[in-house]
Amino acid sequence: MTLFDRYTGTDSSDDTRDTKRGLLFSLVAHGLLLLLMVVGFATAPDNPGPVQVELWAQGTVADAATPQDQPKEKQPDPQPEPDPKPTPPEPDDSARQAAQAEAQRQAQLAAQAQAQLAEAQARAAAAAQAKADAEIALAKERKAREDMERRLAEQAAQEKAQKEAAEKAAAEKAAKEKAAAEKAAAEKAAAEKAAAEKVAAEKAAAEKAAAEKVAAEKAAADKAAKEKAAAEKAAAEKAARAKAEKEAEAKRQALRAAMRGDALEAAGIPSGGADRNQRGGGGNDGYGAKVRACVKRGVVYNVPPRNGSANPTASFRTRLRSNGQVQSVDLTRSSGNPRFDDAVQKGILACSPFPKPPGGKYPSYIDVDYRMYD
């Protein structure tokens, strides 16, 4: 580091460094100019004589005192000496010699003054030239410094841009490589998954086909077995219904005969031709009327107004225990109205135990015919 750089502080900021350098150059230029002026004034004659004033009254002597404000001027051509005035005839040789001596002295003074003026002008011109050179040097140095700083800034900006571009390119490359790797991994995983799913689907399809085949065979066997069982069951049920109907009819006839006999016996009548079934038959205290009254208390059904001669009838076979309790109620013939059938069935169940027959012994079952409009 030079003394100039140490003084101007190159480590400081650009604005402070420029200010210090400008101030230093200004002080050096003014110091040189002051030195030139002091030297010029010191070498000037103390008493230039009156000839200098008379010869250069219209010149630039007055302006030479401040040469720093004057531009460089061309040296003025020396003025021709005035023609000597015709001298009158000298009275003698001594007077002529004295006049010649005086003229020579005046010429020497004029030449001396002219030489001093030329020297002062040269010093002023040299000072002005030195100042101009100093300013030019300062401008050149400033321009060189600015160019250097500009080049350094451009170089730094270029390096920064190149670095950023390189970093961006590296980041983009890394991102592309990462994306490619992830894509390849995803494709590989997808391919493996698809293969596994395909194998699983084929296995499931094979298992499903085998299961469907087994199920179809089992369904066919079950269907055949069900059809056979249904046919056998239908045949058995048909036979059982026929047998049950036959037995029921026989029992119904026997019960009617027994109830008719019991009712007649309770009424003290040895015989009679009136139907004394559950409708009550003849007498106010017939067993059929008691059964109907007992069942009717439990029948909850809003009987609609009668329309025509139709009288829906629900027939039930009611199995009784030995104490008259209802064991079961089976619908043997529907009235065509499920709600009415259900209400009558509930009424029969509610009539438990049944009224005791006149003979004192409950039959095993009683066929109850319940008409809607009786």
Score class of each variant (00 low, 15 high):
322 S>Y: 00
26 S>W: 10
62 A>R: 08
62 A>N: 03
324 G>V: 00
347 G>T: 05
333 R>P: 08
342 D>C: 02
154 E>G: 10
346 K>M: 06
237 E>I: 10
324 G>Q: 01
256 R>Q: 08
348 I>P: 04
184 A>W: 00
198 K>Y: 04
223 K>Y: 03
46 D>S: 13
321 R>V: 01
283 G>S: 05
227 E>D: 14
23 L>A: 15
256 R>C: 04
213 K>S: 10
368 V>S: 01
15 D>P: 12
326 V>T: 06
315 S>H: 06
36 L>E: 02
224 A>F: 03
26 S>F: 09
194 A>Y: 00
136 I>D: 03
264 L>C: 07
137 A>G: 11
113 A>M: 00
99 A>M: 04
104 Q>C: 04
357 P>K: 02
138 L>N: 05
69 D>R: 02
135 E>V: 15
331 L>Y: 03
324 G>L: 06
144 A>N: 11
207 E>K: 12
16 T>I: 07
152 L>I: 05
311 N>F: 09
289 A>V: 04
242 A>R: 13
138 L>A: 14
247 E>C: 04
165 A>F: 06
90 E>A: 15
93 D>T: 02
322 S>I: 01
87 T>H: 08
160 K>Y: 01
327 Q>M: 09
42 A>H: 09
243 K>T: 09
342 D>G: 08
19 T>D: 04
345 Q>P: 00
360 G>L: 14
51 V>T: 10
244 A>L: 12
294 C>V: 02
308 G>T: 00
176 K>M: 12
354 F>N: 01
256 R>H: 12
141 E>V: 05
212 E>I: 05
274 A>T: 06
311 N>Q: 08
351 C>S: 01
270 P>L: 03
205 A>F: 05
20 K>F: 04
63 D>Q: 15
202 E>Y: 10
